[in-house]
Nucleic acid binder design. Structure first.
Lengths: 148, 148
DNA sequence: CTCCATAGTCAAGCTGCTTGACCATTTCGT
DNA sequence: ACGAAATGGTCAAGCAGCTTGACTATGGAG
């Protein structure tokens, strides 16, 4: 595969990723969750199962723990999460989503599903599943980083 | 397709896009082009064919023309591009890549090809081509936006 | 020729991130 | 068991990249 083909793939991938992020965020805001940015959503996906500490969140987002703490301040102030004492470590705090935080997460899922449905209209359902499987096989493990 | 499947696809897509961006940028820096950020690369892809004006660049990147002008200042100062008088409009300036700018673009292509080759090792060459084709069919036309 | 739109820049301000410093608690080495 | 080092978290200051607002110079429509 030539370099120019690799660039074409890269460009398409980044364009699709950029549009997806923007569309999800717009969908979330349109559903009444104002002032939310994409980074909040990525934080929520880490907090969703059982909560997380600030340090874990920082690692997930690929930023310093100060930046993560600041982001937590913001979502706590807006009512999407709360800080609880950590059950096993008195230094740490467990950040967990509130009911409003869960509602916002569901809104993001709906918005994502809308975009994916448009892709299915173009590619067909099976192709979209194939896309998911293939991307899943090359997706890295590390922190989620902004595309640029 | 359920919402959770859409989210799985979205997460994989964004993770892959984030890693690709980071790896390309690291590859560019490792090849001796220090102080380059991903945004520079996206600017270069617009400048590459025949140059562009600041306003066109701003539209391509989805930022204000002041921000684009500032970015041009930076790449001009670093020797990757230069401002020339526009052949058809005395208000405008045509921003074109220097030889060093072209070298940097080639370095980005090599770095991208390296990452794509790793994908081919996992998925196979045919699957990667299929990925490119499908992403190309759902890629939007508008400005290239940062993933978040 | 007049009037408005457009290309570009200068200046000021904001936001989200970084680095550096610090305290409280846990964990490790002996 | 105890002191030292590591870890979780926050406060504070600074910075980079972006925004809005204001302005000049040129182009184009009537």
């Amino acid at each position: 595969m030539h370099n120019s083909e690799a660039m074409a793939l890269s460009a398409a991938l980044l364009a699709v990723a950029g549009e997806l992020t923007q569309r999800i965020n717009e969908g979330v805001v349109a559903r009444g969750f104002e002032g939310m940015r994409p980074a909040h959503g990525f934080a929520f996906t880490r907090l969703a199962p059982d909560g997380a500490t600030v340090t874990e969140l920082a690692a997930h987002l690929g930023v310093t723990k100060q930046a993560a703490s600041q982001l937590v301040d913001e979502v706590v102030r807006k009512g999407y999460a709360e800080r609880r004492p950590h059950p096993a470590d008195a230094r740490a705090r467990l950040i967990v989503l509130t009911e409003r935080g869960w509602a916002c997460t569901r809104a993001a899922e709906e918005a994502a599903a809308e975009v994916v449905r448009e892709w299915a209209d173009v590619l067909g359902e099976g192709e979209v599943r194939a896309l998911r499987d293939r991307l899943g096989r090359i997706a890295p493990y590390g922190p989620i980083r902004p595309a640029w």
